[in-house]
């Protein structure tokens, strides 16, 4: 397959989404009522560990938690199950689901072929996001989170559901954003970084200290 038309198509799609995003602006939504359904994008290794740390402090109002992870991921499912079993000991009404989608980008994959696999992932994640209709998406940088967030924006464009997107950049990122971060800086409602140097470079970001 030729990567260039696909890359141009993806760029056009992102531009369209960005325009819509700016037109909709960030609405001051009225206070939400609990429970609030949460879509959590997990990723291999450190990403999953970090996102579970973030989830560990959330109250039982954040339920159910729908986890999405790449189908080639080996360790995430086990980590999530261990985490949820522990959580169920504290909260009796704990609810969660596990959902797999094709992997968006392998560690050593080139960027042009990443565009193709990302488009393919969007085809998979849109019906999933549509079915789950989360109130909030929490993600922290695995490639999988880009198609999932784009799907959520499509839901918003189609006026099907307003989804709050919260992006937390990985603790790994001290001075530069990840590729997912660079894209979702423009599409997230709240963009959190964990090192002061990034807050300085990206003024829209939020710095709460080290939170994982």
């Amino acid at each position: 397959m030729d990567a260039l038309p696909a890359a141009l198509g993806a760029a056009a799609l992102l531009l369209l989404l960005l325009t819509v995003r700016l037109l909709l602006a960030r609405r001051n939504s009225s206070p939400r009522t609990a429970p609030l359904s949460l879509l959590v994008v997990a990723g291999s290794g450190g990403h999953t560990t970090e996102i579970l740390r973030l989830l560990s402090s959330l109250s039982q109002s954040y339920s159910p938690r729908h986890y999405i992870f790449a189908d080639s991921d080996i360790m995430s499912e086990d980590k999530i199950l261990t985490f949820e079993q522990k959580r169920a000991e504290t909260f009796s009404n704990s609810q969660f689901t596990l959902n797999r989608i094709p992997r968006c980008r392998e560690v050593r994959q080139s960027w042009s072929s990443s565009v193709l696999t990302t488009l393919y992932s969007i085809l998979y994640s849109f019906p999933l996001t549509f079915r789950l209709k989360p109130d909030l998406i929490l993600c922290n940088g695995p490639g999988t989170c880009v198609p999932v967030c784009i799907s959520a924006l499509l839901l918003e464009i189609l006026a099907l559901k307003k989804v709050i997107i919260v992006y937390v950049e990985s603790i790994c990122r001290v001075e530069t954003l990840s590729l997912s971060g660079k894209i979702l800086y423009y599409f997230s409602d709240y963009f959190i970084v964990q090192w002061p140097a990034l807050k300085e470079k990206y003024p829209k970001s939020i710095y709460l200290g080290r939170i994982v």
């Binding site: 560990s56 402090s57 959330l58 709240y190 959190i192 709460l208 080290r210 939170i211 994982v212």
Partner: peptide, 13 residues
Amino acid sequence: GQPEKFAAFLDRV
């Protein structure tokens, strides 16, 4: 790390 700060932030927004 302090994930409770994240939880407090999220509850607030």
